[in-house]
Amino acid sequence: MEQLEKKVVIDVKDLYKTYMVGDEKVRALDGVTFQVNEGEFVAIVGTSGSGKSTLLNMMAGLEPPTKGQIQVAGKRIEKMKENQLVRLRRNKVGFIFQSFNLIGTMNAEENVALPLMFRGVDKQVRVKKAREMLDMVGLTKHRKHIPTQMSGGQQQRVGIARALVVNPSIVFADEPTGNLDSATTEDILGLMRRLVNEQNKTLVMVTHDRELAQVADRVIHIKDGKIIKIDINKKENVENEEA
């Protein structure tokens, strides 16, 4: 069973990203190579300016690399046009933001249903799906609340529900607890961990906090655009597989 090859969903090879700051070249990413397997929870940890956010943005197709290859869900994305990238995100990718980024004029239910609207799903169907998601993240009573009527933790739960509503094969999370207090942080991380386990989702989370990263299966440490260390916290998964 341990010999069974896990499916690779993200394959990053020799990734470089160079920015021009004035006349100076800044290497945000300096030859990064790694893979993420299906059903894996990977944390990318680094200080501010380490290149971790750049890496995430590139995997999500939000900015193009200077050099190198990125394969996401079996597709090479580094040369894709924007509309192809949008389509890929729509069909395969969920995204959780640091500042939640809910649409202020829409209530929780509508926010969660939004990615389904982009897919052209009928209103009744998407509302039903959005409700299921809100039930799952424990916000059954807050369906009709707009973002300003909810706490940060509740907003992020909506954000998570929105990321998962399209049943994506990969979820990216960009400092998902960066705007939350420690109690809520634990709460949210627990929720994310649970979802990965229960639904076999692949989750890539970026954070600056080494402590928080421990919830992940694998922790990729990044500094000055290079991977300096990869920790494997296999305990739980190993237990699960042996059971």
């Binding site: 999500a60 939000l62 924007e82 509309n83 949008v86 389509r87 995100r89 729509r90 069909n91 990718v93 995204f95 933001f97 980024n101 649409i103 939004l114 990615p115 982009f118 897919r119 929105r162 399209v166």
Partner: peptide, 16 residues
Amino acid sequence: RKEIGIMKVLGCDISD
């Protein structure tokens, strides 16, 4: 602008 960005990240077609 921010809303447009969010929509793009969430997979809204550019033409939409």
